[in-house]
């Protein structure tokens, strides 16, 4: 099985962290994985994306021309990547920041207000974690055990409230796994 995922949004939304999280989860499950970030002057603001492949077999191209799933955290990202998803592929949309509708009618579309959910949880920065929860729940690409193990490792050393809010965020994300 191979999963090709593109995470996209604007700089500062934790897009690269999302991608790394996916790759760490793959590593935890002893799978092959590649993580390819955009790099350059996109630290804050601007658009940012990363490409993650998770597979049971050797991965050839880290570059994804056609994705199995795309997570868009802002509107420019949807315009940029909606046509880079395979037929019947998955498009996860951050409804809080994306008003436009996709032109594609051959995709499985899941719209969730990730940013609003994160704000309600008390930390707008964890919208990326909510989105990851939703993706994991739909894709069943990783076990919950592995996901929590990575969450523990990646947040190790941070303040306890950061850890707690992210744990809540991922759980909240799990529950939005149905197209609405």
């Amino acid at each position: 099985m191979t999963g090709k995922i593109i995470c996209s949004g604007f700089g500062g939304q934790g897009i690269m962290v999302m991608g790394k999280f996916l790759s760490y989860v793959a590593l935890e499950g002893d799978k092959f994985t590649t993580y390819l970030p955009t790099y350059g002057a996109e630290v804050r603001g601007g658009t940012a994306h990363c490409m993650v492949t998770i597979s049971d077999n050797e991965i050839y191209s880290p570059y994804i021309a056609e994705a199995d799933a795309v997570i868009v955290m802002n509107e420019p990202s949807m315009r940029k990547f909606e046509n880079r998803i395979k037929k019947e592929g998955l498009l996860i949309i951050n409804k809080s920041l994306v008003n436009a509708k996709t032109k594609r009618d051959d995709l499985k579309i899941v719209e969730v207000p990730f940013t609003d959910i994160a704000a309600k949880l008390g930390n707008i920065k964890c919208a990326n974690t909510v989105a990851l929860g939703t993706y994991f729940s739909i894709s069943s690409i990783a076990s919950k055990k592995d996901i929590y193990s990575v969450l523990n490792k990646m947040l190790a050393g941070l303040r306890p409230e950061i850890f707690e809010v992210n744990q809540k965020a991922i759980e909240e994300g799990f529950s939005y796994d149905k197209p609405r």
Binding site: L27, F32, T33, Y35, L36, Y39, I59, P62
Partner: peptide
Amino acid sequence: DGMLGQMMEP
């Protein structure tokens, strides 16, 4: 190349 430099793999 830049892709190899930037990409992560186990």
